[in-house]
Amino acid sequence: MSEIPGQLKFTRDHEWVREHDDGTVEVGITDHAQTALGDLVFIELPDTGGSFTAHDACCVVESVKAASDVYCPLAGTIVNTNEILIEKPELVNDDPYGEGWLFRLRPDLPGELEGLLDDKNYERLLAEDNE
């Protein structure tokens, strides 16, 4: 069973979102996603300053056999990216909810975050997918 921390929000595409006090959010992929993808060998991060709407592909995570899009969970502007991942993509595998975060986003629409899944709902989604 993969790890699903509380306090985070989740998307159906297996991204997680963490709210910060300054109004920005941190985004990464879930433990379930990194397990399914296998060892990551490259992360193509978005440009800082880039703006996206929800569900836009904005980042690519590569394993040796696949390149998978990461979708922007919320509309907003990228304010920071986790540059260490360029040298150490394995952090996403080792610590998906911590050091393996991908980017920070300043959301455009205040209410949009509430529409994402909470940990219980995400867990249910994984259970359904497994069936």
Binding site: D39, V41, F42, V64, P89, E90
Partner: peptide, 10 residues
């Protein structure tokens, strides 16, 4: 034997 493709890429 089987090769370490992850190492090859990283």
């Amino acid at each position: 034997r089987r090769l370490d493709e992850v190492r090859a890429a990283r």
